[in-house]
């Protein structure tokens, strides 16, 4: 790890001033569950670390059944799970959080950190740059070991998968993200927050180097049915192979509206309007859920070693829909 300057501001205004104008200047430290590893491996080498854990206004969960929720960026995964309203009203988010499979990570990791964490692509993590390229510029992923890489949205240079566990559920819930920066405050739909970089120096989200995610706004969902289904090989500490989060607005057994978002299948969380269209207006059954799963992967394109993920994505969507319709309890 390189030597770095450490700052611990107590307000977001101070924090933003400490962040740099380029990505190489500073990194934001929240839970630190991944950032420190990246620094030890020299994958990121910030000159300054801005610890935001002392900024009180970035914590806490507030809101009513009517207004929806405001979740501070520093809220830990475990705080999310422990909040009394979550389990009842936001099943998909709870199930996604439960999938983060170690108590240590759940206790330290924050919701803001989960959204902004860097890809797990093993070429990136081995020092071949965000897009995984040789010195010649030749991309490594297409002809390399891409068993965990993208099956959707993979026609560009970015072939990694977005690693966020919570983003698919939050996007399915139509969440918005509040951002504070040198130019003041702005708010974007979480769905628009994630981007697929085209060069290795870009980030995977719509943030400027001197901006900070401050909170996540989740609309009221008391009347919707939601679920997240995660396909993960191990019970213990493991990354999902693919996930699907769904939020269904239903009349009886018929779906009036749906939002379906897949995780770990594309460089960004992947909203599938095809799957949504396939299930809206239908009664939920094994057959209609399966058809929605099929629709979700219609545009999927396998790389050399990840064809199996198309099947997994299909099943995840099917099972998430069935789970949601059942009321979100397995």
């Amino acid at each position: 790890m390189n030597a770095f300057e450490y700052a611990s501001p107590t307000t977001k205004e101070q924090a933003v001033k400490l962040l740099g104008n380029s990505w190489t200047e500073a990194e934001v430290l929240a839970g630190g569950t991944d950032l420190l590893s990246l620094m030890k491996d020299h994958i990121v080498e910030p000159k300054r670390l801005v610890n935001i854990k002392s900024i009180k206004e970035l914590g806490g969960i507030a809101g009513t059944a009517k207004s929806g929720l405001r979740i501070g960026a520093l809220v830990t995964i475990q705080e999310l799970l422990d909040h009394p309203r979550m389990r009842k009203e936001y099943a998909a988010l709870v199930q996604a959080a439960e999938g983060i499979s170690s108590p240590q990570i759940r206790n330290m990791g924050t919701i803001g950190g989960d959204l902004c964490q860097r890809p797990r692509c093993w070429y990136y993590r081995a020092g071949f740059g965000l897009l995984g390229t040789q010195e010649s510029g030749e991309p490594l992923v297409p002809n390399g070991d891409n068993r965990y890489h993208a099956i959707l949205g993979n026609s560009g240079a970015a072939l990694f998968v977005n690693p966020s566990s919570l983003a698919p559920a939050l996007i399915a819930m139509n969440a918005r993200v509040k951002i504070y920066g040198a130019k003041g405050q702005r708010e974007v739909a979480l769905e628009k927050f994630f981007t697929a970089p085209t060069t290795g120096s870009q980030r995977e989200y719509d943030l400027q180097p001197n901006e900070l995610v401050t909170e996540i706004i989740v609309p009221p969902l008391a009347r919707a049915k939601s679920a997240t289904y995660e396909v993960r090989q191990k019970e213990a500490l493991d990354w999902p192979l693919t996930t699907a989060s769904v939020v269904l607005t239903m009349t009886g057994n018929t779906v009036k509206a749906a939002r379906i978002v897949l995780g770990h299948v594309a460089p960004t969380p992947w909203r599938s309007t095809e799957a949504e269209a396939a299930i809206v207006g239908k009664a939920v059954s094994e057959a209609t859920a399966e058809a929605a799963g099929k629709a979700a992967v219609e545009k999927a394109k396998a790389l050399s070693k990840n064809g199996y993920k198309i099947q997994l994505a299909k099943v995840a969507v099917k099972r998430a829909i069935l789970l949601a319709a059942k009321g979100g309890t397995r």
Partner: peptide, 30 residues
């Protein structure tokens, strides 16, 4: 039987999963 494999990359000659994230071992629930 279920998880372990040293994954080597022919292009770079490197082991891609020289860590406990992707060199997978069973946990108690497995």
């Amino acid at each position: 039987a279920l998880y372990e494999e040293k994954i080597n990359d022919q292009t770079t000659g490197k082991t891609l999963n020289a860590n406990m994230e992707f060199y997978k071992l069973a946990g108690i629930g497995d």
